[in-house]
């Protein structure tokens, strides 16, 4: 176990390093520059003054080196567009994305498992087909389009739900605010969980010990819930690891449509403004978070699944 942790830790560091190298050189070697230099009416002298101030006149390698050294000490530099520490900007945006992600995981895991079980239990009946059909639709609708249609319908025409983040007074306001973003974000995760649960259930149900339990005369309900379900859910944990990066990608779109001040919108803004430090900061933080959550999922998985003993 310890060896596994150490090895995974080493791999994670290499991974994060590679991501920073790709991002840094991609941005800095491309034409253009931070948007403060890219004003239509700025003169050459103004552009030079700003480049000098932002320290953009050193060679890229040197800049990467100093960025890396600072980053290792926990200093992600200053945002090129607002002058604030990058970490501060990330910290103020992070909770919004985190809440969105947690609620989406929560919602899609619960609903996904329930639908998956219904689907498996009623295999090849209309319930199964309907759930399957719904899953495919969820995977097929462009999420931003669905989001805009939702806003048109629920916010503008029916005026049931707010179209963007509002500071609500009651809990009900807060819940209303989350409904649409979580639903939209779930279209990327829910179908996968449903399908995975379904096939996992079917596999377990056909296995010997469940048949034995049944033969012993246990009630169908007991068989499903206490024996089959527990074993079927173990692989579902592993799929959550795969879904986290996918969901974070989804937040970019959802946050943009709903004006949600989270990390996804932050990186879009930062990339457009060529705020090099901020893009680097968000990329590093998000990568670390994803790697970390995968790591945790793996450990939980190896703990609960008796079959996975010698992982790695």
């Amino acid at each position: 176990m310890l060896q596994f942790v150490i090895r995974r830790f080493g791999q994670s560091i290499v991974l994060v390093l590679i991501v920073t190298i790709i991002t840094f050189f991609l941005m800095n070697l491309a034409p253009g520059g931070p948007s403060s230099m890219m004003r239509m009416d700025a003169t050459e002298a103004e552009r030079e003054a700003i480049a000098e101030q932002l320290g953009l006149n050193d060679p890229v390698i040197v800049r990467y080196g100093s960025w890396l050294i600072n980053a290792f000490q926990g200093d992600l530099g200053l945002s090129l567009s607002s002058g604030q520490p990058v970490l501060d900007r990330i910290v103020e945006r992070f909770p919004h994305t985190f809440n969105l992600a947690i609620w989406t995981v929560f919602f899609s895991v619960i609903i996904g498992i329930v639908l998956g079980i219904i689907s498996a239990k009623n295999r090849n009946t209309w319930k199964d087909h309907l759930i399957n059909f719904g899953s495919v639709i969820g995977l097929s609708v462009p999420s931003f389009w669905l989001a805009i249609m939702f806003i048109l319908l629920f916010s503008v025409n029916l005026q049931w739900l707010p179209s963007s983040l509002v500071t609500g007074d009651s809990i009900w306001d807060t819940i209303k605010m989350y409904i649409m973003p979580v639903l939209i974000l779930s279209t990327a995760t829910l179908p996968t969980i449903v399908r995975f649960t379904r096939s996992s259930m079917l596999e377990v149900v056909s296995q010997n010990y469940v048949r034995t339990a049944r033969a012993k005369g246990l009630k169908e309900r007991t068989v499903v819930y206490s024996h089959a379900l527990r074993n079927a859910l173990i692989p579902v944990i592993s799929i959550i690891g795969v879904l986290i990066p996918r969901m974070l990608s989804g937040t970019v779109i959802v946050e943009s449509v709903f004006g949600w001040p989270g990390m996804g919108r932050l990186i879009v803004e930062a990339a457009q403004a060529r705020d090099y430090n901020l893009v680097m900061g968000v990329t590093v933080v998000v990568t670390i978070l994803v790697v970390l959550s995968n790591f945790i999922v793996d450990i939980i998985y190896s703990k609960v699944d008796p079959r996975v003993k010698n992982i790695g």
């Binding site: 806003i151 503008v156 963007s164 943009s256 004006g259 919108r265």
Partner: peptide, 10 residues
């Protein structure tokens, strides 16, 4: 702070 014009109009 509403970056999207459609939200502003709504």
């Amino acid at each position: 702070i509403l970056p999207d014009v459609n939200t502003q109009i709504a």
